[in-house]
């Protein structure tokens, strides 16, 4: 059983990972569009000022500069909010990074409704869909501080463009410290026989809580952490569903274009299976505390419990 080692924000996991990369990989450089503190990139900036590029509030230019900086083997990490890392600069990423095959790591904080009070203008819920559609793009959404740090270290070793998505609020930190992060490898967190529950990002912790509650009611739920949405670990998904015959997905993202859709596509082509999806249902977010918003938009453990029970 996983326990919270003390709430931490996933963006701080990114900041810690980036700082460590600064010490261990001289090829890593970082760019930020006037959100250094919010992205927790300030420690890297302080320690490695000659490898840090402050571009100002100009995200399109940041993406292009990052593409150009790959000349000579540099590994650029860009940092800004998820909204400004994707939708605002989609064409720059598409042409100058993805199509051009540049080894740029697009690191995006404040994804989803848990950004909170700033409201819907900043709460992007479409970013996974946007990024997973780009050929050659790897899309990663780790679940807690420890895993975000590990993912940050891992993407520096991966050749090719990556979208790394994380968030603002302090949430449960429950995966092992100093874990090895394997891109594209789903993690079985809890075995079960009745339902396969596939979750990503902040919803992994909620899914574990839901599974523990359902276990007490006699429903055996298998929880799998899909930290990498693309490439999707289809083998792990099909193996689990072959056993349970039921699938639930959980994510802090639009129902259109997210993890649920990727898994539905995999299952429908290989092993058609009844599914439930926990996601935002074709709606923008709004202002509120992260917890209030999770409740209002149906992303809490109790919503996952209710979704599982629809099978029975």
């Amino acid at each position: 059983m996983f326990t919270d080692q003390g709430a931490k924000d996933t963006r701080s996991g990114f900041g810690a990972g980036l700082l460590e990369l600064g010490k261990t990989n001289p090829k890593v450089v970082a760019l930020c569009a006037d959100l250094t503190g919010s992205l927790k990139m300030d420690a890297f900036e302080k320690e490695f000022p000659d490898r840090f590029y402050q571009v100002g509030i100009a995200e399109a230019n940041m993406m292009g500069i990052a593409a150009g900086l790959t000349i000579g083997g540099n590994i650029p990490f860009t940092g800004t909010f998820a909204n400004f890392s994707t939708g605002r600069v989609y064409d720059q990423i598409r042409q100058s990074i993805a199509y051009s095959g540049k080894n740029v790591k697009i690191c995006a904080s404040h994804a989803g409704v848990t950004l909170g009070e700033d409201g819907a203008t900043h709460q992007i819920l479409e970013d996974i869909g946007l990024m997973k559609m780009l050929p050659g793009m790897t899309v990663i959404n780790p679940c807690d501080y420890n895993q975000t740090k590990a993912a940050t270290l891992a993407i520096a070793e991966h050749e090719g463009p990556v979208y790394l998505r994380f968030g603002r609020p302090k949430v449960a930190n429950f995966t092992p410290e100093n874990q090895k992060f394997e891109i594209g490898k789903a993690l079985l967190l809890k075995e079960g026989t009745d339902v396969s529950l596939f979750a990503t990002g902040h919803l992994v912790w909620e899914s574990l809580q839901a599974a523990y509650a359902l276990e007490r009611e006699g429903i055996s739920v298998e929880v799998i952490n899909i930290h990498t949405i693309k490439p999707l670990d289809e083998e792990a998904i099909l193996k689990s569903v072959a056993k349970t015959g039921r699938a639930v997905t959980a994510e802090e993202h639009q129902i259109n274009g997210g993890l649920g859709e990727s898994i539905a596509s995999t299952l429908s082509r290989n092993l058609p299976t009844p599914m439930q999806m926990i996601a935002v249902n074709d709606s923008f977010g709004e202002s509120g505390t992260p917890d209030q918003l999770m409740k209002k938009y149906g992303l809490k453990d109790e919503n996952i419990v209710a979704a599982v029970k629809r099978f029975f």
């Binding site: 450089v29 000659d50 490898r51 590029y53 399109a60 230019n61 940041m62 993406m63 292009g64 500069i65 990052a66 593409a67 150009g68 900086l69 790959t70 000349i71 000579g72 540099n74 650029p76 064409d91 720059q92 598409r94 042409q95 100058s96 199509y99 051009s100």
Partner: peptide, 24 residues
């Protein structure tokens, strides 16, 4: 060294390459 066609992107890329030249 870069895809282009969608306009307005090449100056940023060239700046990045120039920064890389300086770094290297």
């Amino acid at each position: 060294r870069i895809a282009s066609g969608s306009l307005g992107q090449g100056l940023s890329v060239a700046i990045g390459a120039a920064l890389a030249k300086k770094r290297n």
